[in-house]
Nucleic acid binder design. Structure first.
Lengths: 139, 139
DNA sequence: GCACTGTTGATAATGATTACTAAAAACGTC
DNA sequence: GACGTTTTTAGTAATCATTATCAACAGTGC
């Protein structure tokens, strides 16, 4: 984290992302930060989420519903439950081997890769039935 | 492809997606279709891209720049070149094993997974240097 | 032809994200 | 701690992608 001033809005934004496990959207972070800093601006939230992501303090990811942020900046994969919509972190799988194989097959230089899993989490499996509508909800 | 009328706009939209290798956005498809059907509406393009994706004729995917469509509806992974921005199809890797392992570790039922690779394609490697700005361009 | 159903084009509405700007805060220097 | 400089902020307008609405139209079967 090179020269990066930790102003109060910035710190609260970072804490909001880290203190939840929902891989929040900007709107979610905004609602959270507003509890402690009611006059914060939505633009400030967006701006700082991008700044913090550029610094590598946060990770940024796009999914079907838009932009999401992740307080865990270490490499890891994601599992999205189609029942409740929650996104869980899962340990990243193999490293070099897959990249080397793809490179050999295609001539691409693979610098990075990320896997997304989709399915049903333990809770939703126990409840049986099909995905509840609330699963589609954004947060 | 169950009962799905192949109207002229719909057919042209499908062809536009299939006749390119760029994994186009809706705007790109719109521009293409307009060449042959100048009065087509952007809403028609969006509507039918969704319809065709729902039918399984096309695949829909979200990335940092928004929605993209893929004429290849078979399971496969993607390699995104950070140099030129192009997205290449790559064969999907192993199937069952990885899902089973994750299920055992977490209790999740994994129904599907998808891997995104990032790196530099053959052309961009040969040209050396760092990513060209045009790489960020949308199409 | 006539009723019925699905599709279209045009445009308005929505929602997320970004740009802009004047004021406030943080900093370094004296 | 006042002063000039730089960064950051709040507030708001602007932009952009996507979706909704709806009247007109086309296709089908009777």
């Amino acid at each position: 984290m090179r020269g990066l001033r930790l102003t109060r809005p910035r710190r609260l934004i970072l804490e909001a992302v880290r203190d939840t496990d929902v891989h929040p959207t900007a709107a979610f972070v905004y609602r959270r930060v507003r509890r402690r800093l009611p006059r914060v601006s939505l633009a400030t939230v967006y701006r700082n989420l991008r700044v913090l992501a550029a610094e590598g303090v946060l990770a940024e990811r796009a999914d079907a519903g838009g932009l999401r942020f992740d307080g865990n900046a270490e490499p890891h994969d994601h599992f999205t439950c189609i029942g409740c919509g929650r996104i869980h972190d899962v340990p990243v799988r193999r490293g070099r081997a897959v990249r080397a194989r793809l490179a050999a097959q295609t001539g691409f230089e693979v610098l990075n890769h990320r896997t997304e899993y989709f399915g049903r989490c333990g809770d939703c499996r126990r409840q049986g039935g099909r995905p509840s509508p609330k699963g589609q909800r954004r947060s």
